[in-house]
Amino acid sequence: MTNDLRSADLLEPPWTTTTKPYGTALLELARERPEVIALGADLTRQTETDLVRDALPDQFVNVGMSEQHLMGVAGGLARAGRCVFVHTFGAFATRRPFEQVALQLAYPRLNVKVIGFMPGLSSPGGPSHQAVDDVALMRALPGMLVCDVADATEVRQAVRLLADHDGPCYLRLKRGEVPVLFGPAHGLDLARAQWLRRSGADDVAILASGMLVATALRAADALAAAGVAATVVNVPVVKPLDRATVLEAASGVRAVVTAENHSVVGGLGSAVAEVLAEEGGGPPLRRIGVLDTFARASSAPWLFRHHGLDVQTVVATAWGALGRPGTPPPADDVAVETGQYAPV
């Protein structure tokens, strides 16, 4: 029943990066499946859908800057039998058209995939562009599958898996350079969280989603060097949450840490807290994420450090949750060259 390490084809750092994994995968899917249609509201290159626009113009529609209308058109196309992928930045896909997503997509359970780019603090654009509450909003909608993947390999696999999932989905995607953490044998499973590190005698379990998965892996390395064994679980699907794996990860450890590029209100940390509280008797939980605040318009590395979404904060949080004395071990900064990726 348990999900072992074999389904994860985890590569060793330094991780490389790639560009347009999403657009490439969507184009491939759209070529195979004429019922697939890519919708956007401006931001075509930014959402990698220029690849579909240029190769398959009949399967691409730009409705202009009108996100409420965008969701309505998506609903109409889906009701007429299309498999609709809707694209904009995550902040614009979930805040302004929340009612339209709720009533025209989620409530009728239509086959529409809402793709929100620039998750959390990966946007330098300040509160207007930073989707730090998108997971919370989408998670509140009945029937909505909410997905935050960790790397380019998962992005490619998610496109196909979401297309095969007959119902509404929300997928948040890093824009630009996307790290490659997983090899081709990796198997993303929408029903399963996935063990990435596991010793069988772990002190702490780190449950991470999206961009914080790489961060959690690096933190686990730093903790291991200081004699702390950390489980790392990749939780790509925040809803429906893989309850069994969450509980299994929490059993036998002395602390659980969640890590997400999102507000600690309503996202992965909240979802895990709900499961642990309902089960009762579990270890203490610490949540890493944006601490119920609006952020500034600054670079992603600065924001990740400033708001504690960095490796050192994950290390310190786990260290503190375990009640270890003294200073937490330092997380070494990894020097990366162009085309390589390391979390801050």
């Binding site: 409420q68 109409g76 196309l77 007429a80 009612e99």
Partner: peptide, 16 residues
Amino acid sequence: GALGQGLSVAAGLALA
């Protein structure tokens, strides 16, 4: 029931 949404959905159906 929430007003102002129907014409967009109709446009999606007509487009399809």
